[in-house]
Amino acid sequence: MTVLHDTTLQPGTPGPSAPLRPWVLDDRGHVDLERTGTPDHFAVLGLPRRLGLDTDHLDVTFRSLVRGLHPDRFAVHGPAAVARAQWHTSLVNDAYRTLRNFDRRVAYVLELAGDLREERYQPPAELLVHVFELNEAIDAMQDARDEGDAEAAAQAERDVREATATIRESRAEVTARLVAAAADWDAAQAASEQAGAELPALAQARTALRAGLGHARYLDNLLTRLDFSATQ
């Protein structure tokens, strides 16, 4: 059993000596999942578990890690070294992909907490009706196009464009709410870490995050469909 500690990365030097992050490796050089569990994305990148993070710093960390660990660096060192590099790089890639995007980062933090029924988000009826009606409007626009009814299609397109603007505004509001909830969560998480136990504020922050993310998902689905129908 070896615990490898972070050393300075030296990009551009292919070879098995490329440094590794502090993961627990077994004697064969595999990450010991039994010890580390599925490695936590924050831990893989050497970051504290916080939602507010400096994405520039994240980019730099990712690039330097991947430069040292990527299997292409080990191509001439035999299949075992390549296999190990594949596995390590996949962990770095997965962590980066998840944490680089704010929404995905929030979803990941919620996933770590588990599916908690009492924190579940129930979308308000008005939102659902609104989303439903907009979906029907997109359908109507596509039908009008399919039937070659230029006038109806133009009218429908105007309606859809207006609706898109409104949805984008709502999405921006939801993002602002999520950012505020993320700051609350970070504070609660820091306090919980210090207290050595989960504080009630953490669950409150999570509930707010779940609500924001749930709301955002409806708007995003709709925006994807609106964008797609606009380019058709």
Binding site: T38, W87, S90, L91, N93, D94, Y96, R97
Partner: peptide
Amino acid sequence: NSSIPASAT
């Protein structure tokens, strides 16, 4: 569109 290598357990 996930960067590769990518893994899932």
